[in-house]
Computed example of a mutant assay.
Amino acid sequence: MGPSVQKLLEIAGTPFVRDIECSIESLDHLGEIGTSIRDVLARKNGFFCFESALRFFPSVTVETSWGLAEWNSSDLWKADYRGLANNIFCFAEDVFGQQFAVCEGKIGTFEVETGDFRTVALSLEEWASMMLLDYNQMTGFSLAHEWQVRYGPLRPRHRLMAKTPFVLGGEYSLENFAALDSLQLMKTLGNLAHQIHALPDGSKVKFKVI
């Protein structure tokens, strides 16, 4: 385990799951990154970091968080992306529900409003280093902090969703965000991403919270 991953674990909150046993066979296909995720879960089985702006999913679903297996199942929220999320394995998320995922041996961000995947790192150590160096940009920490100062702490399974999505011209301001259950958020934005994927600029879409 590299120094950046160790540092991230040190500053993270208490684990979501006290039982540190982790036996997720589905991580094997992720290669070295999967091994690194296993190592993290063996030390701290799911956690929040940066005042809950970053969530690292635990091995199993508990009251405070979805677990890796269920969160990555094809019939939970991925179905609403209608193929756009089929090839990714999500292991963490930022305060806006943006997914940090593994795809073809690389770590990237899955843009929940558009369904696009953008590579950001080649290992979990590199990803953790980026988190520590620029956690505000990577997790939305500043806005999450300000929002929670004004409106109170986010519920464990809630994330912040833009009332008017960024892709539709929404502003990056406190007034444009509302707390929403993470599953509801993903299903809603999955429907949006499906509509706008590959559409030319200026096309009309229907945005409705599911």
Rank of each mutant, 00 (worst) to 15 (best):
H29A: 09
L30N: 04
G31R: 03
E32S: 05
E32W: 02
I33G: 00
I33A: 02
I33H: 00
G34H: 10
G34E: 07
T35V: 10
T35Q: 08
S36P: 00
S36Q: 14
S36E: 13
R38G: 00
R38I: 03
R38T: 08
D39R: 00
L41K: 03
A42C: 09
R43K: 14
R43S: 15
K44T: 09
K44F: 11
N45M: 09
G46H: 07
G46S: 12
F47N: 08
F47T: 01
F48Y: 08
C49M: 02
C49S: 09
E51D: 14
E51A: 13
S52I: 03
S52L: 03
S52V: 05
L54P: 06
R55F: 06
R55T: 15
R55V: 14
R55G: 02
F56L: 12
F56H: 03
F57P: 04
P58S: 08
P58G: 12
P58R: 09
S59A: 14
V60I: 14
T61I: 05
V62F: 10
E63V: 07
E63K: 06
S65W: 04
S65G: 01
W66D: 05
G67R: 04
L68Q: 06
E70T: 11
E70H: 13
W71H: 04
N72E: 12
S73N: 11
D75F: 11
W77K: 02
K78R: 15
A79C: 13
A79D: 14
D80F: 15
D80Q: 13
D80H: 13
Y81E: 04
Y81A: 05
Y81L: 10
G83R: 03
L84K: 00
L84P: 03
A85Y: 05
A85M: 07
A85P: 01
N86T: 12
N86E: 15
N86L: 12
F89Y: 13
F91C: 00
A92R: 01
A92N: 02
E93P: 00
D94Y: 07
V95F: 09
F96D: 01
F96Q: 01
G97R: 02
G97A: 10
Q99E: 13
Q99T: 00
F100M: 11
F100C: 07
A101H: 09
A101P: 06
A101G: 07
C103G: 00
E104C: 02
E104P: 00
G105W: 13
G105P: 09
G105N: 12
G105V: 09
I107V: 11
I107T: 00
I107Y: 06
I107M: 04
G108P: 09
G108V: 10
T109C: 12
T109A: 12
E111L: 14
V112G: 02
V112T: 13
E113T: 07
T114K: 13
T114M: 12
G115W: 04
D116R: 10
D116I: 09
R118M: 05
T119W: 06
T119Y: 08
A121T: 05
A121H: 07
S123V: 10
L124R: 02
L124V: 08
L124H: 05
E125A: 04
A128S: 15
A128F: 14
A128Q: 11
A128K: 07
